[in-house]
Design a protein around this nucleic acid. Structure first.
Lengths: 227, 227, 227, 227
DNA sequence: AATGAATGAGCATTCATTCAT
DNA sequence: CATGAATGAATGCTCATTCAT
């Protein structure tokens, strides 16, 4: 199962093998339950080599998080073509997100489940990636809303219009936050059952987003009762 | 910091103190990183007593999960008055949920973050509570939709109407699932920053729900592009 | 299984119940593996009471050894009627020994197996009983030999005769030691299988004794080769 | 006292040092009372190394039993020269047995005292060695008897002769069992006093064996009284 | 006569980490 | 480039023993 014992490879390659092994072990067992022994064995190298290249368990975990966060962000970015309409861009992004997390469940488990439970340094790494994504989604949501509501955005720049725009952006931010939150837990949940495809998951969430946009444009909203 | 060293108390009391301490330690450090020594110390008792009353680390964790899941469910149930209109019930439930999770962040961390990462027995306990809540929300969503869409439900019972009802229920279930997912991660996220109140979090989510309901009733939905 | 929970009994009775429980637990698990909790539970009393009556684990073990060693010695003594011929007395003693050890396997395990492995104090207690038995057997062996060899004991008191008597006694001592050793391990072995009765075991050993006596009288013996 | 702290030795060597230490500690204290700390310290290594090489306390105990059982069996085997007469072979075997057990009292304590009190796996290991020895002795006894009784074995093969041979073999088996039992406890006993040499012990037992053989050939035996 | 409450000390086991080669 | 040998420091858990009632 572990990498075949091949000797004498360049450092870069060995490092990737170690990270691969680490993702699997960390993803399946969590940070604390993962043992450097197991990771080294799965990587097909001796423990001292792991330490030589990656310094410590914490550094290794950090490296894993960085690599996988980057990979996920890249996958989403690559799927979104700026020339397409906003709603299509949102859909493409969601689909790419769920496809990637479905294809790399251990990586997603590390990012979503395990990184959060181990103090600032790790959580921060993930939080960075997350806010990048939230911003990206918020911008898409706003754009989508704009495209949809095109008619009323004819005379741009009036005071009223600008106020509306601002409210729209705040609402969009809220929606984006909720969307990403939902997406995250949906991705985790989708990985636990094999009855749901990435497409289906993306469609479910896209519909919620769509509904949110509808209200956003209609200015409809629910007001909580006084205390 | 820990409970004042009070000697000779009845078992039931000591047990609660131990569970209190366990919630804090487990919630802040996770199952694996939590040490029985620390829990015992925080509880103000010696380790053997913890084992005498709670048998093992796993049993202690289990007891914590059961107690906190029950407490959360009870808090939500207590907030919802059946005689109020559906949207108000949904709001009350959400508010109670976010209030409770905000007031007991360690407990929520145990339920949401840590219980899921430790094999069937623990996850199952949480899953049970979760599905109770999802069902509860789905029913509220459906009821809210019915109340809102009252006019069009005049001639009840026609074949068309029934078909519509069914579709509504399915959509409600999907919406409920997404809502709870979002709520869960929102609760976790709200706990990491102190700039958001439970009320604000609840309002954000209520608005998404509201938007979802709007679409639900309007039959609007977004269709993904062909492959 | 354990004594029915009867409250408020006189000390002497309770003490015997505790010793009964201790014999079982010590016999089956050995000194170290036996826990005072288990003994107290089997005795149907609380642990502090055991300590109140028997002071410590070591004292309890000691009490068990004393009681069981005395019981075994008594059983053997009771079986041997001084008016019977020597060979019959030897047989009666052996039979009583194997019968008692078969009927009280836990007690025998304590005496033979466990007492020896725990330092002077305990071993000494058993050694005392053992040497009492060895002496008793040696005397029987000598007497048996005398009875058998009656003819030549006519003119008592001659120098030759006395020298012979001495040699006989030494040989008898050696034989007795070997006999008792064999008896001990035979008893332990007989307890592990249920296919052998005390009678059979006694007969086997009696035959060896008989053979030994034959040689003893015949003056036959095997001389080791020089270095 | 313990091995001088020599660093960095090949695994095989360290393993033997650990086994040496384990024999001493287990032999003197028994399985339960022996602590891995003490064994490691006596071996001059850290505890983790003991676990790395020998896995667990049970495995270590097992390894000790296997090594010492093999050593004892080898010592006996090496002493017996097939070309010598049967009685000499028996003597050589006994002498080797008592010499070895006297020279390695801890090892004998482990095999005879402690291994028996710890469940199937360990007892089985010893039982195997024991039955090998019993068979070996039984065969020697039979051979000795044959040599002694040479005259009557002239007309080999007659029905009578064969029946006699069979009875002889059964009796030999019984005698062997008793002999080995006696030898075992004699060895243990000899180790507790320092007044008896292996030679003396062997001589005592050889004489019993010799006596048994005498009776065997003479067909003499003692019959128990009716119930 | 009897016990519920409580603990100090120890034990088997594991793990992240480092030398010396 | 790579590793066999080795360990300090925990960690979960148990046990004999004692108070206060």
């Amino acid at each position: 199962m572990g990498a075949v014992k091949t000797k004498r490879m360049p450092r870069a390659v060995r490092e990737q093998q170690m990270l691969d092994a680490a993702v699997r072990i960390f993803g399946q067992r969590g940070y604390m339950a993962a043992s450097m022994d197991d990771i080294a064995e799965l990587a097909g190298v001796s423990k001292p080599l792991v330490y030589l290249y990656l310094n410590s368990k914490e550094d290794l975990f950090s490296a894993v998080i960085r690599r996988e966060a980057a990979a996920l962000a890249a996958a989403v970015r690559a799927a979104v073509h700026p020339e397409r309409p906003a709603d299509r861009r949102l859909w493409d992004g969601l689909l790419a997100f769920f496809t990637h997390t479905a294809r790399h469940p251990d990586a997603w488990a590390v990012l979503h489940l395990h990184a959060r439970t181990h103090g600032e340094p790790f959580a921060a790494e993930v939080a960075a990636m997350r806010s990048e994504i939230v911003a990206f989604v918020a911008q898409l949501v706003a754009a989508t809303a704009r495209d949809e509501g095109a008619p009323c955005s004819g005379e741009a720049g009036s005071a009223d219009t600008r106020r509306v725009r601002l409210a729209e952006q705040e609402a969009a931010a809220g929606l984006a936050e909720a969307l990403v939150g939902a997406a995250e837990s949906l991705a985790a949940w989708a990985n636990t059952t094999d009855r749901v495809t990435a497409r289906q998951t993306a469609a479910t969430l896209m519909n919620v987003a769509w509904a949110g946009l509808g209200d956003l444009m209609a200015g409809r909203s629910w007001s909580p009762p006084a205390e």
